[in-house]
Nucleic acid binder design. Structure first.
Lengths: 210, 210
DNA sequence: TGTACATCAGTGAACGCGCGTTCACTGATGTAC
DNA sequence: TGTACATCAGTGAACGCGCGTTCACTGATGTAC
């Protein structure tokens, strides 16, 4: 969907090398601090090839950000496919995001750097969450304060959790503890009963990746 | 404290003009996207003057970030001075941050852009919060999950709230609602009793600015 | 108060290099017959 | 299957300008006598 329609194998290989190099470099520093020379050197292609695939540096950065966004969006969508309870969907979304961050620290770093996302209820990645909250509110599943500010609250937690998990040096057990605790804290704040919150946070079958 | 010891009035004026221009520009775009020419033009000083005050562009950006950080840190510290209940301190910190964001959108934008802060428990701005959580845990005021992940949880909420309040077009009433709701949600998540949470969120005397 | 001198900070022209972008050329891949 | 031709994508040298940094000079501020 993202790639322009029908790319020749050779072109696809070059493009993929550039994109991979971009993720490696963009994870560590902002686009303006990365010379194109460094991108093409890392990718092992000629400088001119860069402009066969991207109009300029900004377009390159935007393409990478969009790619991760769509990827994560897809994973969340697939994980929640068929789940009707909005609370389960909301919780599942956080867990998928967390798992994604652990599995793809570089891509996640690029996503987090592309900023501004948290606050915007209309952002595509956030649209689904907003819908789930609306439904949860309609069904009376969440508290009063969560009706106005629940989305902001939840996205803030997701972002903080992802940023935390992206750091190196994490050990897997501690990471899982963080995810579970964050779910318990988050759900409790929404007004979910303590035991239900712990049960939902512990459950993970339906939202394991893929 | 931030200014080098004893700056002549003339030098102080020039420096202040550069700093003010820096906040205006840095609020909108990252430092790498801002030519020094633009900074000095905005400040109305000669290009050479820039280097009388800052070693280079990065040092300039770092100085601005540090300045806001210290300012906010000071406000939180002063607001919490004399308050012993860790729950009140934790809540007061969020409210001060929110008020700061409303009153200083540009400075806040610079602070938020200087990134990485949320996740780091050892960061100076976060040190106080971590201490308050430790004490709250010791006193048994907060739930089990909050002992391990409470700081990350709370800092995530503060950052999301600030990022939200910094946007233009906010009307004051809606902003206050957001702050109160975020406090209620946040405190409830920590395991604070619903009525206590609402009471603390509603109270604001001790943490009004200055 | 006035004069001479020292220091401090501002100025903007000049420099030079890093880096984004272009382009003529080449080799690889694909297609027609 | 083989040959000729067209297109597509890669290559890297060359270009040129934007921008960070320097520096010699000037004017302002401060101090000594």
């Amino acid at each position: 969907m993202l790639d322009q329609p029908e790319l020749s194998p050779r072109a696809a290989r070059t493009r993929a090398a550039l994109v991979a190099a971009g993720f490696d470099l963009l994870a560590a520093k902002p686009i303006d601090a990365i010379p194109i020379d460094e991108v093409v050197a890392t990718a092992g292609v000629a400088k001119g090839s860069f402009f066969n695939h991207f109009a300029d540096k900004q377009a390159f950065a935007a393409a990478l950000a969009t790619e991760v966004r769509l990827e994560l969006e897809g994973q969340v969508g697939r994980a929640n496919d068929g789940i009707v309870d909005p609370i389960e969907r909301i919780a599942g979304g956080m867990r998928v995001c967390a798992t994604f961050a652990i599995d793809n620290p570089k891509r996640t770093a690029v996503l987090l750097r592309s900023a501004g996302s948290v606050t915007d209820r209309k952002h595509p990645l956030n649209k689904g969450v907003a819908d789930d909250f609306d439904e949860a509110a309609t069904l009376g599943l969440i508290g009063a304060a969560a009706r106005g500010s629940g989305v902001l609250y939840w996205l803030g937690l997701c972002q903080a959790l992802m940023a935390h998990l992206v750091e190196p040096k994490r050990d897997p057990a501690e990471a899982q503890a963080r995810i579970t605790e964050m779910l318990v804290l988050g759900l409790t704040g929404l007004g979910i009963d303590r035991h239900r919150a712990e049960a939902v946070a512990a459950r993970c079958g339906h939202c394991s990746r893929r």
